[in-house]
Nucleic acid binder design. Structure first.
Length: 277
DNA sequence: CAGATAACCTGCGTGC
DNA sequence: TGCACGCAGGTTATCT
C-alpha cells in the first residue's frame, strides 16, 4: 500500500520518536512475510541502539548501533506503528502483528501486515548496497539524478505505457499506483500512452509533476486510501487531495468532464479524457 | 531483451 | 443474512 510519500512520512515520524532508543527485546511471529524473517532476528538486534532512520524508495532503513540495519518494506498492506506503554493496537488486527520490538522506554515498534507482502530483514550496513532489491532501484524521484533528460532517455523507444514506466522501480524508485495516476493528471498525459511516443514537452511536464505531487503528498503525511496508518496510528491527510485516483465518474476538477477508469498493466488507472492526451 | 501475465495473501465492499 | 466475486497502495517469477 505505501508508496514513497507514506514511507517518507513514516521515516520522519520515527526519526523524531525512536532515535536514541535501545531495543531490549521483542518477538517475531510464526507466519512468513514475502521473505522469511530469520528466527534469531530479535536476539540479533537486542541491545542495539537506533541511530538513524533512513529511506530508499519504498524501503525503510532502521540503522542500529554496531553497524546493523533493519530493512523494512511494507508491501501492500503493511504498517509500522510506534506504541507507548499503554497504547492500544490502533485498530490493527493483532493477528497480523508479525514483529514487535520492545524499546528501553517501555514503548514498542510493531510491524503489522495482513497480506504479508512485506519484508523485514537484518543485515550489516556495509552490505546494504549488495542487497539485490536495493541494487536494482533507479534514482530517487526527489533527487537531482531524476530529470527530464533522464526520463526522456528511459522512455526513448519503449512501448510500455508511460504509467508503467513511472511505476517501474528500476526507472525511478518510489512511485506506486496512486501517485502514478496523480502525476500523469498533473502532467496532462494519458496513462496509456506508449512511453516512446510521449513528446519532449510532455516528458518535461511529467518530470516536474513527479516531485511536485510526491512533495505535496509528503507534506500531507501521505495518503490513506483504505486503511493505511502512520507510526502514530493516524491516517494520511493527502487522500482528500487526490484529484483522480478512485474518482471514476466524478467531475474533473479542471473541466468537469467525468473521470475515467482504465486498467493499465493490471492496475486501475484514472484520468480525464479531456485534460490528458 | 522488452513486455505481458500469474502469483503471492488476506480483508472488505458489492451485488445477488 | 450469507456467499461468491472482484478488487486492493507491491514485487517477482515465468512466460511469449
Amino acid at each position: 500500500m505505501p508508496e514513497l510519500p507514506e514511507v517518507e512520512s513514516l521515516r520522519s515520524l520515527l526519526d523524531n520518536s525512536v532515535v536514541g532508543r535501545t531495543i531490549v527485546g521483542g518477538r517475531i511471529g510464526k507466519k512468513p512475510l514475502r521473505r522469511h524473517v530469520t528466527r534469531d532476528f530479535i536476539a540479533d538486534v537486542k541491545g542495539h541502539r537506533i541511530e538513524r532512520i533512513a529511506r530508499r524508495a519504498k524501503y525503510l532503513l532502521i540503522e542500529l548501533s554496531g553497524g546493523l540495519v533493519i530493512v523494512a518494506h511494507l508491501g501492500m498492506s503493511g504498517s509500522l506503528t510506534h506504541r507507548d506503554g499503554n497504547a492500544g493496537s490502533f485498530g490493527l488486527d493483532p493477528a497480523h502483528d508479525h514483529a514487535e520490538f520492545a524499546l528501553d522506554d517501555g514503548s514498542r515498534l510493531v510491524f503489522n501486515d495482513p497480506r504479508r507482502f512485506g519484508i523485514l530483514r537484518l543485515m550489516a550496513r556495509e552490505r546494504l548496497s549488495t542487497l539485490k532489491e536495493l541494487e536494482a532501484l533507479g534514482p530517487e524521484p526527489l533527487g537531482a539524478e531524476f530529470s527530464a533528460d533522464y526520463l526522456a532517455g528511459k522512455a526513448h523507444g519503449r512501448k510500455v505505457a508511460v504509467k508503467n514506466l513511472l511505476m517501474d522501480q528500476r526507472i525511478v524508485a518510489g512511485i506506486g499506483n496512486i501517485y502514478a495516476s496523480e502525476i500523469l493528471f498533473r502532467a496532462g498525459v494519458r496513462p496509456t500512452r506508449r512511453s516512446g511516443r510521449v513528446t519532449r514537452a510532455e516528458i518535461e511536464r511529467i518530470a516536474r509533476a513527479v516531485p511536485a505531487v510526491l512533495g505535496e503528498a509528503i507534506e500531507g503525511r501521505g495518503t490513506t486510501f483504505r486503511n493505511y496508518l502512520d507510526s502514530r496510528g493516524e491516517p494520511g491527510r493527502f487522500a482528500s487531495k487526490l484529484l483522480v485516483y478512485d474518482r471514476e465518474g466524478e467531475p474533473c476538477v479542471q473541466c468537469s468532464t467525468p473521470l475515467r477508469k482504465v486498467v493499465v498493466g493490471q492496475r486501475a488507472s484514472f484520468y480525464c479524457a479531456k485534460c490528458q492526451r
